[in-house]
Amino acid sequence: MSIFRTFLYLLSCTLLVSCTGPKEDAIASYEHSAKGSFASAVSHDGKYSIISSIHHGVALWDNQQQVLKYQWFQQPNEESLVHTVAFSFDDSHAVTAEKTTFAIWDVTTGKNTGYYKIKTATIRDIAISNQGQSVLYGRSDNVVVYLNLTTGRRIEFLGHQEKINVVDLSPNGNFALSGSNDYAAYFWDTRTGQVTHRFNHPSRVTQVALDPQGRYAFTADSMAQAHVWQLTTGDLVGKLEYIARQKIFTAVRFNQAGNLLVTGSPNRLVDLWQLPSGKKIQSWLVAPREGSRPKSAVVLDVAFTDNETQLLTESSSGIAERFKLTAVDK
């Protein structure tokens, strides 16, 4: 799910983080946006991608046929760009968000099923549950909002003290994970608004993700901590092992078994990690756009595909790429 499974400000990030180990090339690549993308999301199974770009508006791609399935609308100017996109876990619906509006889309028919405008602050990140029944969005005024689109029931979560950076929503819409500049991530119940666990970090939380099977949560900060937590107990079960003094994640995904984690970064890097050890077992680099300066790209989303033998990435270069997993002990 995206990302922010990603953030608006990371799209222009030129941070280069030093790293070691071999980087493998893509086995296939497909152009999804002629001049790069502003935001992207890949469905959990890799079947579809949403691409938001200045030149092509918002497009839904069928990654199995490699055809443009729907082009939902053109974007009139940079001030009204769709900066956040996400799929429901069941591939049935997608959500696209601008600063103060968001829209719900039926993936099968391509039809818009709802258009909403918020009155307070701006949207920083958004997620959607199965069947498009509910959405969760984080705002710039420190508030996370859960909205049941069927019943109209609404909860404002007020636990954070600083602006929200990232959110994720369980497939059934019952649980939320939110991360903020207040150095904390909260796992909370959308039916009651009550906090189940608080996950603390030494700096602002820049990435979160829920394991769709309900076992784990991933939280990472802006400096050097990336943790995997057990959702039933709140206990720390693993830390990603890396030596960089600063490492930012712009995409993250658990595999089906919950023993692998794949991450993307703003410096083209895609890493595969073993859980719970947190050891990096494989790395790749996404391609920069030809002629781009600097020659870099932000990994906007990544998913396991082909029975978890491959990865599919979308990056700010506007290119989808496939990478092969090798020597993975499942």
Rank of each mutant, 00 (worst) to 15 (best):
M1S: 13
F4K: 11
F4I: 13
T14I: 09
P22Y: 11
K23R: 14
E24V: 08
A28Q: 08
S29T: 09
S29V: 01
Y30M: 02
H32C: 13
H32M: 13
S37V: 04
F38L: 13
A39C: 11
A41R: 01
K47P: 03
I50L: 15
S53H: 03
I54G: 09
D62M: 00
N63T: 05
Q64N: 14
Q64T: 13
Q71S: 14
Q74M: 11
E78S: 13
E79M: 10
S80W: 11
V82I: 13
H83C: 07
S88C: 07
F89Q: 14
D90W: 05
D91G: 07
A94R: 05
T109M: 04
G114T: 06
Y115S: 13
K119N: 15
T120V: 12
T122Q: 11
I128L: 12
G132E: 01
S134T: 09
G138Y: 01
R139P: 03
D141A: 03
N142R: 14
N142I: 03
V143T: 10
V143L: 10
V143P: 03
V145T: 10
N148P: 06
T151R: 05
G173D: 03
G173C: 03
N174F: 07
L177G: 05
S178L: 04
Y186F: 14
F187A: 01
F187T: 00
W188Y: 08
T190Q: 01
H201Q: 10
S203R: 12
R215T: 06
Y216P: 02
Y216W: 15
A217D: 05
H227F: 12
V228G: 02
G234A: 05
D235L: 10
V237Y: 04
G238S: 10
L240A: 01
A244F: 06
R245I: 08
Q246A: 09
K247S: 11
I248K: 10
I248Y: 11
I248E: 13
F249V: 00
T250P: 01
A257I: 10
L261H: 02
V262I: 01
P266F: 05
R268H: 02
L269W: 04
W273S: 00
K279N: 12
Q282M: 07
E290L: 11
S292E: 14
S296T: 15
S296H: 06
S296K: 08
V299L: 02
T305A: 08
E308N: 09
E308P: 08
Q310V: 00
L311F: 03
E314F: 09
S317I: 01
I319Y: 00
I319N: 00
T326D: 14
T326I: 09
T326A: 12
V328W: 02
